[in-house]
């Protein structure tokens, strides 16, 4: 079993408001993430997805000042007990805009990947090994000598991703990291995330696009207007009646199979294309 019963993140009654705003950006968050889980956060724009991500990695309340209530535990320890830098060895964050994740002090992809390691004082010999290993994982081996600023969006996102992953966190938080990429670019990122998750890395991912998330997610946290609307398996989340009101689009394949279930052609709605294909083929053959 890929998902263990151990909680690696627990969020206990956590609320946060940015300074000068009365309404909390997120309030009364209560959920846990299990080791090895593919955990997705879904919500409309402004629902609080990024605020929640920043809270998980300690940027809130250490970098963004404001008022907090409750606590966030990562690997059993409160995020406020360590600096953001120390925490990044346990839980890494990948941004939406990869350009803002670069250090702007390096001239090659290899140096960019190594930058965080240097700050942690990792000896050079180990650095070389880890750069090579991460480059392979991120499929950027051929780009190691290139200037990061000359790469395509998808390539830079993989460099940014690599520069987070090279610190060896066991949990990855990905905040809309495919929004700015074309379909091929985001496909590549998804493949890498899936692979890392298969290898045991816990993944927390947000996106406005539910099409692909729904296929990979073990569980989904539904957010609306800073409030937690529910945490459940994708089947349960997308069966909810209030999705329309919450401004969440249902994956097209799921909608289709929902309709087919309603009229009695299928027995239950599905997300996975392969399973849907098989079921529909059965239906086609069965009637013939």
């Amino acid at each position: 079993m890929k998902v263990s019963s151990k909680d690696v993140i627990s969020v206990n009654n956590f609320s946060f408001s940015y300074p000068q705003t009365k309404k909390p950006a997120i309030s009364s968050m209560n959920f846990t993430v299990k080791e090895g889980e593919f955990f997705c956060i879904v919500g409309a724009n402004g629902a609080g997805k990024s605020t929640l991500c920043d809270s998980l990695v300690g940027l809130i309340p250490q970098y963004f000042l404001g008022t907090t209530k409750g606590q966030v535990l990562v690997n059993g320890q409160e995020t406020t007990k360590q600096t953001v830098a120390e925490l990044s060895l346990e839980i890494g964050l990948v941004f939406q805009n990869p350009f803002n994740q670069l250090s702007y002090t390096t001239s090659t992809v290899a140096e960019e990947l190594a930058y965080g390691l240097g700050n942690h004082g990792i000896p050079r010999s180990e650095m070389l090994d880890r750069v090579a290993a991460v480059a392979k994982k991120m499929r950027i081996e051929s780009l190691l000598d290139r200037d990061p600023l000359t790469l395509s969006g998808g390539q830079i996102q993989r460099v940014a991703f690599g520069s987070t992953y090279i610190l060896n966190p066991s949990i990855l938080v990905l905040d809309e990291c495919t929004t700015q990429l074309d379909p091929i670019g985001s496909e590549e990122i998804f493949t890498i995330i899936k692979q890392l998750n298969d290898e045991g890395v816990t993944v927390v991912m947000t996106d406005t696009e539910t099409e692909r998330l729904s296929m990979y997610a073990d569980r989904i946290l539904l957010l609306d207007n800073g409030l937690q609307m529910g945490v459940d398996k994708p089947q349960a989340i997308f069966a909810r009646e209030d999705l329309e009101k919450l401004n969440i689009s249902t994956p097209l394949n799921y909608q289709l199979t929902q309709e087919l279930t309603k009229i009695g052609i299928l027995d239950s709605p599905e997300f996975n294309q392969d399973i849907i294909l098989e079921k529909i083929k059965e239906v086609e053959n069965g009637y013939r």
Binding site: P251, L252, N253, L256, E259, Q273, L277, K281
Partner: peptide
């Protein structure tokens, strides 16, 4: 990549191009 529904119909080998549920 065509929209998921279109893709599904094509993978089922249907000749008609499907665009909606």
């Amino acid at each position: 990549t065509p929209p998921p529904i279109t893709d599904l119909a094509q993978k089922l080998g249907w000749e008609t191009t499907i665009l909606s549920i």
